[in-house]
Simulated scan of single mutants.
Amino acid sequence: MTISGIDRLHSQLSKLEDMFPGYVTEIVEGNIVMNPVRPFHGRTIQSFWGIVEPQLPAGWVVVTDVAFPFDDAHEFCPDIAVIPGEAEAENRSAYAPDLIEFVAEVVSPESIRRDYELKPRWYASRGIANYLVLDPLKGHVVTMWNPGPDGYLGRDTIRYGPELIVHSPLGKLTVPTSLLPVDPKAPHPA
């Protein structure tokens, strides 16, 4: 599919979002998927954005819920993606996934399989060096690195609380996980 074809398809998906406010729309495995946005989801994005953006080298920016078509059956709108500032300045509705240098998703009850199983394979296949799964439902972050054709070869799970250091092509990113919101129903460490 060409970028103009992708732009047309995404503009159609944007109309769906306009008809159903409070939902994020993606194409996953050829299906249109709409997820409700919850307060902890939005707060996690805002907190993480505020932590990461000041640490980025010049020329890099954070975007959220912008379309990245991977193929005709997969168009993801990452919760956090770091792309070149010059690309973001184009203010488009869809960007090539090869622009993503760092990506993070925030888990919601409806996105567990996609965030933990499906998206890591696609993000790794494009060589995105670091993928973080921020999970306010479980109160932890899963950090993935060393991308390969079938997914990430490195993976750690860290409970919210300590400082997380991510060594990325963008430099060392420090994330004080204690600042990330946790669903009160999340299991807590003993």
Rank of each mutant, 00 (worst) to 15 (best):
P78Y: 04
D18S: 15
D18N: 12
V166K: 00
P109C: 05
G139S: 08
A87M: 08
K119Q: 12
W60M: 07
A96D: 14
P189L: 08
P120D: 13
Y95W: 06
S108D: 11
T25S: 07
V175R: 01
F48P: 08
V182A: 11
H41W: 08
P176I: 03
G148M: 06
S4M: 10
L56C: 05
E75M: 04
G30E: 11
E53F: 05
T177W: 07
K172G: 00
K138M: 15
G59R: 04
V141Y: 08
V106C: 09
P147C: 09
V133N: 10
L13C: 01
A124M: 13
Q55S: 03
R8E: 15
E26G: 02
L9V: 02
D18P: 01
I27Y: 00
H10A: 00
R159L: 14
D156A: 14
P147M: 08
L9Y: 05
V24I: 12
V141W: 07
L180Q: 04
T2I: 04
P136K: 05
E88D: 04
L99K: 04
R92W: 03
I158T: 15
P69A: 11
A190S: 11
E26T: 04
D7L: 02
L132Y: 01
P36L: 06
L132E: 07
G139V: 04
G5E: 15
V82E: 06
K15H: 10
V142I: 15
C77K: 06
G151E: 12
V103A: 13
L13A: 01
E29Y: 03
W122C: 01
P78L: 04
H188S: 13
I165E: 13
P162G: 09
G148H: 11
I45E: 06
S111G: 08
E26I: 00
L179A: 13
A124E: 14
H140W: 12
A89I: 07
V24A: 09
L134C: 11
Q12S: 12
E88W: 03
P162C: 08
E101G: 13
W60L: 03
S108F: 05
S125N: 15
F20N: 13
K172S: 08
F70W: 05
L180I: 09
L134M: 14
V61G: 03
V66F: 05
S178E: 15
A89Y: 02
T2E: 15
V142H: 08
E110K: 06
K185Y: 09
E17D: 04
H41R: 11
A186Y: 07
R113K: 12
N91G: 09
V166T: 02
P54Y: 01
L16A: 05
I100V: 14
N35D: 13
I128K: 03
M144A: 13
P147R: 01
G127Y: 07
P109N: 03
F70G: 00
Y95K: 00
Y131V: 06
P69H: 03
D79G: 10
V133G: 11
V175H: 02
R155S: 15
I32K: 02
S125F: 06
P187K: 04
L13V: 06
P176W: 02
I158N: 08
L137S: 13
V63S: 08
I45F: 09
R114G: 00
